[in-house]
Simulated scan of single mutants.
Amino acid sequence: MVAAHEVPVPDENAGTARDLRMATFRLSRRLRSERGLDTMTDAQFAVLATLKGHGPHTLGELAEREHVTAPSMNRTVNCLEEPGFVTRTPDESDRRKVIIDITPAGRTLVTETVRRRDLWLAAVVADLSPAQRKTLADAAALMSEVAAG
């Protein structure tokens, strides 16, 4: 099987692919700027969101999920543990492992960040015409399909 990045892009799609990539990148950057805590990094927020959405993980599981090394994830978790956004608990079945879990303060921070991002995006979308909103809704469905592979 050929990986998607190895498939040559027909010339007639290159411009669309570039425009879509750049628009997605800009929108993502703008959404990330809406945070519940300005000093939190994107990597730290991603860990909190993972823990909120998927439950407790070991350090290794978090590192694998976020595609980083265990030492890098350990630094990220340390930064989240100090202000009380996560806890570490020894694994009852294997004392060599530590379970990382989100605290109520961490959950509140994730909820607030998502709320801010949704509010910003809803306000921007509200200024669009009904036809533009329909186009965005259709594009969102298509982008989800493309992302699913």
Rank of each mutant, 00 (worst) to 15 (best):
M1D: 15
A4K: 10
A4L: 14
V7S: 03
P8N: 00
P8L: 05
V9D: 00
P10I: 10
A14T: 05
A14Y: 06
G15F: 05
T16V: 10
A17D: 13
L20C: 03
A23L: 15
F25K: 12
L27S: 01
E34T: 04
G36W: 01
L37D: 15
M40C: 02
M40N: 00
T41A: 04
T41G: 11
A43M: 13
F45T: 03
A49I: 04
T50H: 11
K52Q: 13
H54E: 15
H54P: 00
G55N: 00
T58H: 09
G60P: 00
L62P: 02
L62T: 04
L62Y: 05
A63F: 01
E66Q: 13
H67F: 07
A70N: 08
A70Y: 03
M73G: 01
R75P: 04
V77T: 10
N78P: 04
L80R: 03
E81R: 11
T89D: 10
T89L: 08
T89W: 02
E92C: 03
D94K: 04
R95S: 09
R95D: 11
R95W: 02
R96S: 15
K97R: 13
V98L: 08
I100K: 01
D101P: 03
T103L: 06
P104T: 09
A105D: 13
R107K: 06
T111P: 00
T111Y: 05
E112V: 07
E112S: 09
T113H: 03
V114D: 10
V114T: 12
R115H: 12
R116P: 07
R116L: 13
D118F: 10
D118R: 14
W120D: 08
L121I: 08
A123K: 02
V124Y: 10
V125D: 05
Q132I: 05
K134G: 05
A137M: 07
D138M: 02
A139V: 06
A140I: 02
A140S: 10
A141D: 12
L142Y: 12
L142Q: 12
A147K: 07
G149N: 09
G149I: 04
